[in-house]
Design a protein around this nucleic acid. Structure first.
Lengths: 122, 122
DNA sequence: CTGGATCCTTCTGGATACTG
DNA sequence: CAGTATCCAGAAGGATCCAG
C-alpha cells in the first residue's frame, strides 16, 4: 500500500514492507465496539467490574465486551484482575499504555460533539 | 447509556436521550475500512479516480470501497463526480466537512506511529 | 478498459440459554 | 456474576459479469 506518515511525508516503500498508520490502527483496535470500550475505560480510569462496565456500554453485548477486553489485555491496553470470591468478581482497568490513547480519542469525541447535530440529521 | 462528554463533565441523562460521542462516531463512520478511507482522501486532498484510490487502499476490496464512498457521499464527507467519458471516469474528493476530520484522525495516526513498534510485536 | 453490480462463501456480531 | 455455547442475521472477501 502506498501511504504517508501522519506528517504527510511522501515515502516510496514497497507495499509489503509498509502499512499506513490507519491500517495498522484498525487492525489493532479492530471490531465494531473497540473504540467506545477503550475510551470508556480511559474515562472511568479505575478498576471496574464487568457488569458495571457492561451497563456503561449500553448496546454492547456481553459476548462482544468479553472478547474485546481479552484482546485488549493481550495487547497490554487493559489489565484484568480476577478475585476468587463467590459471587465471582472480575475487574478491568486501563493500563498506562492504554491511557496514552486518551488525547487522540478525545479528539475524535470533540469532533463528534461539534458535528453531531448536523451529521445525525441528514 | 451512561456517558460523559469529551471534557468529562459528569452528566445525568437518561440513556434513551443521550449517546456517548464515541457511540455516535462508530455509528457514523461505521465499517472496518471507514477510517483509513476517509483519512486517505484527506491526505490526497484533491480529486482521485476510483482505481487509483483503490490502489492506495491496498487490502480494501472494490466492493467495500464503493459502498463506503457512497455512504460518505450521503453524509457530505465526500464528493463524487462522474464524467461521461470512455473509458468511464469517476472522481472522489474530500469535502470541507470531511476535512474537519483531519486533525482528529492525524492524532490517531501519530499515536499509532509512536506505538506501532511495541504493539505490533506482541 | 473502468467502475461497479451480482453471486457465493466466510467471518463478525446479536440474541438467548446455560454453566461454575 | 462472569463467562461460555449455540444459533442465526448481517457484514465483508473473492471472483466473475456487465454497461458504456
Amino acid at each position: 500500500m502506498i501511504c504517508h506518515t501522519a506528517q504527510e511525508v511522501t515515502m516510496t516503500i514497497t507495499p509489503k514492507e509498509y502499512q499506513c498508520p490507519m491500517m495498522q490502527f484498525v487492525n489493532l483496535i479492530s471490531g465494531k465496539w473497540s473504540i467506545p470500550i477503550v475510551y470508556r475505560l480511559i474515562i472511568i480510569d479505575e478498576p471496574v467490574r464487568f457488569g458495571e462496565l457492561l451497563k456503561h456500554l449500553a448496546p454492547v453485548t456481553q459476548k462482544e465486551l468479553t472478547k474485546h477486553l481479552r484482546a485488549f489485555e493481550e495487547k497490554g491496553l487493559v489489565q484484568r484482575t480476577v478475585y476468587a470470591e463467590i459471587p465471582p468478581r472480575v475487574e478491568y482497568e486501563i493500563t498506562a499504555l492504554g491511557k496514552t490513547l486518551k488525547q487522540p480519542l478525545a479528539g475524535l469525541a470533540v469532533w463528534m460533539e461539534q458535528h453531531a447535530a448536523y451529521l445525525l440529521h441528514k
